[in-house]
Nucleic acid binder design. Structure first.
Length: 950
RNA sequence: GGGCGGUUAGCUCAGUUGGUUAGAGCGCCUGCCUUACAAGCAGGAUGUCGGGGGUUCGAGUCCCUCACUGCCCA
């Protein structure tokens, strides 16, 4: 059956097909292992669940490419590989999106009511929620789709509820009025992490507060306070000064009259106050500032909340009630000015917190929320990393992790939303106590009253995603019958993610995982130690994908690259390879399509190599020669009598496989990708394919044409024989052997490449087997592993010598202007070892350097242009005059280079300290190199002198 | 304000415990449609490794310092 491939590789023609095939065939499903049967080593990765509302961006693609490469690689290495996909319900984001939709229909969330609104969100999810995973399918992610989860699934909701109840039982959940970050637009509390700070040019208003005298009337004196948020003065309950601030000593114990509100407030003394900032007197608003709240606690001050859920002044604001906070600010400043209570306005740059989700300025506000007392969980999480149970790559991120973990604040987990896991707590109208329960209670657990209502708040989205490593494998319902998944797959091996969710997600998973998995005994019944309670053993943090100019991609800048678009243009494989080759740990990726173009060319190169190979396989078949398929699928080997190029390419393949495996083990995707690229293009295509053309001679059965004939130089006419000449009686055998090596090396190289370029390799691999593949997919074959014995140096060194000769001849030809098509004789002066190699492989030199005849000579004939290497001198026999000026320039440059190098080497070798202290191999290496440089220098100098003058 | 990075060829980046004359891709220059591939082949040019100081026989690599730059936290 002839293989017919189009001349240029068109990824769009095959990618959709394979993407669908992999999903349809459920190729990457990893079934639950049979209990009690050790099915080998697991490799488990959890996909960081994208928001269900999300669209795939470049960051996702990088993340997924890295995970897919590792998963495919481990799977091919024989591990029980499992990559679990899913989506996050993304509380605020999803609620906002559906809310907008509802509003556009003329309705509203409130009009619909909670139940109907939540049903609408589910409906939305059913229709559009799969979009991002569909995009993922298109990228070829080798996940187990049968295990797809959604954080609001029943199964995962049970885990959320169990976690909450358990923490509550352990006294680690509390509810109370505290200052939280309030988003007036989302109308919910948000956690510290969800606040992003932006530098903002604002003002510092200085307000004069009248001091009340002994008589209870205004004394005529004022205390001036400075504030960036004058509207919060409505809620002031004190003014604080530093106890040792001499400017204000006389005011100790006095009271002030709060302007506009006309409330008496005390002057309090606290060392927290900075004497340098503003006027050294600070207004205290416990209900609207975290520092003030702490001050209020210390000094037992009342808290007066003056803001409602929407950021408008509430009834506590007197005549300002109902005004938006910024309108109120304006009016208050104006009123103060009218009353001559405004001492000044200064420009002031400060950081303002914004809602991570909607960018609205956050209002710190006193409000009743649910919190997790985090310290006990954090302690375990710190220990897990300190003791090395979890390893970070790059290691640097462990520092960031510790920094945050050691300064952690209690986690505000309640959100005033409708979309999410509703907090399993019931308020009693009778005794006002709270009942927290696994099953919905019918009555108050404290007084038995049936007048109970469920808490309306839902949990922070990260509470459920933080539980994923335990919940996707069945926690908390882990019984004798249901524990196989947990035993086989927990802890997961690796988490691959961006640093942006290091605290949001990674840290929370570590805390919750260590906390809850610790209660699950090991498969053999032993108690689980911390090292096995961790949610993952390693964390790989990848960089940010930026645009080609290193700018952060953002919608407002308009520099966002849509991965799907770029994939359509260049092919998924090329984009994946771009990301992999640039994914050096710790460095951001400047995504440059020029690189992608280069890797599309790489894909095309491989495609065409395949065309060449198939063409020859077909030609051979016509001559009755077929490839021995039984040798495919393993690591290729060759006998000692095989031609140099065969021994060389096999050695290179083994060396490359070793390097790729090692690089991947260290998350060096860039090293691995570059090694494969170099092998495929630089070694396999540029050298091996060109040489192997000499051997693929199927049609003609004549003898002695290419083998055994060698023109000797002036060596007394000695006839030299090629080692292959003994096989000359049957030319089919070497051709068949060459074809087999060619195909088997190519097949192995495809497997090596397949985690990086799954589509192209799938297509070509199947073509290699011509409809009779040993597996359904290349992804289910074995990954090439280097065999120590096959990694020999000799063929690599011999080949290098040959390559040097060929390159020198090509350069020489270019310099003296030999036409590309012309073949010329060459003269080579060399020592015995190199001579043997050159002579044995003269046909290679002849073909690759367009040499008509290789003459081994004692001396290069006078007048010929020549080049020098340490092992040989070579000249091209050609009548055209040497460009003496250009030659002089080149030699002068070379001489300068050699002199510099030699001087440096001799300086070191003359240094007694170096000789005494440097390790012997280094000294030996330097001596050898100095010797070689000296040879080259002498040769170059002689050549320069022998050049015709002028 | 605290913490953590980065600075290597025109561009984007490698350079793992200090060890020979610092690499790759892209781009650039020159010549080739050599029937696998012009998305190609062959040849070529390109660096005071941010500045300064130190440790060492030896520093792109370790230490100090300065400059510029990015990120995280408050």
């Amino acid at each position: 059956m002839p293989h017919e491939l189009p001349k240029a590789y068109d990824p769009t023609a095959i990618e959709d097909h394979w993407a669908e095939f992999w999903v349809r065939e459920n190729l990457f499903a990893q079934p639950t292992p049979e209990p009690g049967r050790d099915a080998g080593q697991s490799f488990v990765i959890l996909l960081p669940p994208p928001n269900v509302t999300g669209r795939l961006h470049m960051g996702h693609m990088l993340n997924q490419t890295e995970m897919d490469i590792l998963t495919r690689w481990r799977r091919m290495c024989g591990d029980r590989a499992l990559w679990v996909p899913g989506t996050d319900h993304a509380g605020i984001a999803t609620q906002m999106m559906v809310e907008r939709q509802v509003v556009s229909e003329g309705s509203s969330r409130q009009k619909l009511g909670r139940e109907k609104f939540v049903e609408r969100v589910w409906e939305w999810k059913r229709h559009y929620g799969g979009a991002i995973l569909d995009q993922m399918k298109r990228l070829g992610a080798s996940v187990d789709w049968s295990r797809e989860y959604f954080t609001m699934d029943e199964r995962l909701s049970v885990a959320v509820r169990e976690a909450f109840v358990k923490l509550h039982e352990q006294g680690l959940i509390y509810r109370g009025a505290y200052i939280v970050n309030w988003c007036p637009r989302c109308q919910t509390a948000i956690s510290d992490l969800e606040v992003v700070y932006d530098e903002h040019k604002g003002h510092l208003w200085e307000i004069r507060y009248p001091v009340i005298g002994e008589d209870g009337k205004d004394s005529g004196e004022f205390l001036t306070v400075a504030t960036t948020r004058p509207e919060t003065m409505l809620g002031d309950t004190a003014v604080a000064i530093h106890p040792e601030d001499e400017r204000y000593t006389h005011l100790h114990g006095k009271k002030l009259r709060l302007p506009l509100v006309d409330r008496e407030i005390p002057i309090i003394l606290d060392e927290w106050v900075s004497r340098e900032f503003g006027t050294g007197a600070v207004k205290v608003t416990p209900a609207h500032d975290p520092n003030d709240f702490a001050l209020g606690e210390r000094h037992h001050l009342p808290s007066i909340n003056v803001m409602d859920d929407t950021g408008h002044v509430n009834e506590n604001g007197g005549k300002y009630a109902g005004l938006d906070r910024y309108v109120a600010r304006k009016e208050i400043v104006q009123s103060l000015e009218e009353r001559q209570l405004l001492a000044g306005i200064k420009d002031h740059v400060h950081n303002v917190g914004h809602c991570d989700r909607c960018k609205t300025v956050v209002e710190p506000r006193l409000s009743t929320q649910w919190f997790v007392k985090i310290q006990p969980l954090a302690d375990k999480a710190i220990e897990a990393v300190e003791k090395g149970h979890i390893k970070f790559t790059p290691e640097m991120y462990a520092k960031t992790y510790f920094e945050w973990m050691r300064n952690i604040h209690d986690w505000c987990i309640s959100r005033q939303l409708w979309w999410g896991h509703r907090i399993p707590a019931w308020h009693c109208a009778n005794c006002h106590k709270v009942t927290v329960a696994r099953e919905d209670p019918a009555a108050c657990a404290h007084c038995g009253s049936e007048k109970i209502t469920q808490e309306t708040d839902v949990l922070d989205t990260w509470f459920s995603s933080g539980l994923l490593p335990v919940s996707v494998f069945g926690w908390p319902k882990i019984s004798q019958e249901t524990r196989a998944d947990f035993d086989a797959f927990y802890p997961t091996n690796l988490l691959v993610t961006g640093f942006d969710i290091l605290f949001f997600w990674v840290a929370r998973m570590i805390m919750l995982g260590c906390w809850f998995a610790g209660d699950v005994p090991m498969a053999d019944g032993r108690p689980r130690e911390l090292k096995d309670a961790v949610p993952f053993r390693e964390v790989y943090i990848h960089a940010l994908v930026r645009d080609a100019n290193r700018e952060k991609m953002s919608k407002t800048k308009g520099n966002v690259i849509d991965p799907i678009e770029i994939v359509k243009q260049y092919g998924t494989d090329a984009v994946r390879f771009t990301l992999a080759s640039m994914a050096s740990p710790g460095t951001d990726i400047a995504f440059n399509v020029a690189r992608t173009e280069g890797y599309r060319a790489f894909a095309n190169k491989i495609w065409n190599a395949a065309r060449f190979i198939f063409m020859n396989v077909d030609k051979a078949a016509e001559a009755g020669i077929s490839v021995d398929r039984s040798v495919l699928g393993a690591m290729p080997t060759v006998g000692e009598d095989a031609p140099l190029e065969a021994r060389w390419i096999v050695a290179e393949l083994h060396a490359t496989a070793a390097r790729v495996n090692e690089s991947l083990a260290n998350y060096r995707y860039d090293d691995a990708a570059n090694a494969i690229y170099q092998f495929f293009w630089g070694s396999f295509c540029d050298w091996y394919l060109e040489i192997v053309k000499l051997r693929l001679n199927f049609e003609k059965q004549q003898v002695g044409e290419s083998a055994g004939q060698l023109v000797s130089g002036n060596e007394a006419g000695e006839e030299l024989r090629s080692p292959r000449s003994s096989n000359a009686r049957d030319l089919r055998r070497p051709a068949e052997a060459a074809l087999t090596t060619l195909v088997s090396v190519f097949e192995a190289a495809l497997r090596l490449l397949s985690p990086f370029m799954p589509f192209l390799t799938e297509e070509l691999w199947l073509a290699v087997y011509d409809g009779q593949p040993p597996a359904k997919s290349i992804a289910l074959t074995r990954y090439p592993q280097a065999d120590g014995a096959a990694k020999e140096q000799a063929p690599i060194e011999e080949m290098e010598l040959l390559q040097n000769l060929i390159v020198e001849v090509r350069a020489l030809r270019k310099e003296i202007g030999v036409e590309e098509k012309a073949s010329t004789p060459i003269e080579v002066r060399t020592h015995a070892t190199a001579r043997r190699i050159f002579e044995a492989n003269h046909d290679i030199v002849e073909r690759l350097a367009r040499v008509s005849e290789m003459r081994i000579a004692h001396e290069i004939s006078a007048g010929l242009a020549k080049h020098h290497a340490t092992a040989f001198d070579v000249a091209v026999v050609y009548e055209r005059k040497v460009d003496a000026a250009a030659e002089r320039e080149r030699l002068t440059r070379d001489i300068a280079k050699y002199e510099k190098g030699l001087a440096a080497a001799e300086r070191q070798l003359g240094n007694e300290g170096f000789l005494a202290k440097a390790p012997a191999p280094v000294v030996e290496g330097l001596k050898k190199q100095a010797g070689e440089t000296r040879t080259l220098l002498e040769k170059a100098r002689a050549a320069l002198e022998s050049l015709p003058k002028g």
